[in-house]
Simulated scan of single mutants.
Amino acid sequence: MGAILIRKWAALVGSLLLLGAVYLFARGTGAASLVAVWQKINGFDLFLATLLVFVVQVATAWRLQIIFLMVRVPASLFSLLRVQLIVLFVAHGLPVSALADIAKVAMMSLRFGLRARDSTRIVVYERLIAAGGLVALGIIAVFVSWLAGLLSGGWQIEAAVWLASFIGLVGLVGLSQYKCTVRIAVVDGIVREANDLGRELADLSVAGLLLVSLVVQLGLSALAFLVLSHSAGLPLTIWQLALAMPFVTFVASLPIFYLGWGGREAAVVMTLGTVSGVSPAEAGALSVAFGVCVLLAAMPGGLLWLLRPSLHR
């Protein structure tokens, strides 16, 4: 009963955050400006961006495969891609991405015959690795932006987010190293998994592969944004987009949002909406177009879901 109530409250809070973000975004931008950007994006460019987003899912499945091998569970890339696509599709029916993680645990347990505890560990590993990698790359991106004179108008907020996240990760590592507990089951569980993950990542070759998979994911996302921005006639360069991707992806991946909606738009407006020649409305419209590509890239997952009745349970 307690777990059900937590999920319901998580759904309610996530939905309210999404509605609040949409309201604030719509209030500060004109609908005509949004539509004007969308009308410029042609069908071929939308297809190409969607294809790139689909390949992003392949990169994510590859990172998941590395984690599977790290915990000594054999799994093919195709099988994990299938799970990734189905979860992405199912997630469109869930109000917060945290519930999509629960769906991923269930599907991996069903597909690979894992215990729920083992599947949960893999999902927690995936979250921790992505968060740690994004924080590291985000800090590097801010430093490079400063050196190149490409700091966004909201760089102070971005830097504050990275600093707070870094302190949080250091605290998590400290708790795991000294095996401290805070008597909160969820937090103590994450601390234990972080301790185990630290031992697994002692193999630098594995850690390097995981970082490469994340860089590939961010690079492909930047290319998808580039295709959409050029189609819409927005003067954004690949370097500006690449430097913004760690922050945009980090905010969008927070488990309180519905597939990143609201959070991603705010992050894109903050980083790209302050670039010369790009208005906040245009940056927001670009982010929404990217979100549509994510939706379209999830459609193969819907077909796979329909073809596997056992996954409907």
Results as ranks from 00 to 15, higher is better:
residue 19 L to W: 11
residue 291 G to D: 09
residue 238 I to S: 13
residue 300 P to D: 11
residue 155 W to E: 01
residue 240 Q to Y: 09
residue 12 L to H: 03
residue 24 L to T: 10
residue 124 V to D: 01
residue 231 S to L: 10
residue 186 V to C: 09
residue 147 L to F: 09
residue 156 Q to W: 14
residue 25 F to G: 10
residue 285 A to M: 08
residue 55 V to M: 10
residue 284 G to M: 11
residue 98 A to F: 11
residue 276 S to G: 14
residue 126 E to G: 04
residue 112 F to W: 02
residue 293 C to I: 10
residue 209 L to S: 14
residue 28 G to S: 12
residue 138 G to S: 02
residue 39 Q to M: 10
residue 38 W to H: 09
residue 249 T to C: 03
residue 45 D to H: 14
residue 110 L to W: 09
residue 165 S to A: 15
residue 195 N to I: 06
residue 229 S to E: 09
residue 87 V to K: 03
residue 61 A to Q: 02
residue 182 V to K: 04
residue 155 W to T: 00
residue 305 W to H: 14
residue 273 G to D: 05
residue 74 P to N: 00
residue 306 L to F: 14
residue 62 W to G: 00
residue 269 V to Q: 04
residue 198 G to T: 04
residue 19 L to N: 04
residue 20 G to V: 09
residue 157 I to L: 15
residue 203 D to Y: 05
residue 38 W to C: 06
residue 176 S to E: 05
residue 135 V to S: 03
residue 229 S to L: 08
residue 39 Q to K: 13
residue 146 W to E: 07
residue 166 F to I: 08
residue 274 T to G: 02
residue 59 A to G: 05
residue 154 G to I: 01
residue 167 I to A: 15
residue 228 L to Q: 01
residue 37 V to S: 01
residue 270 M to V: 15
residue 270 M to D: 00
residue 277 G to C: 13
residue 179 K to V: 11
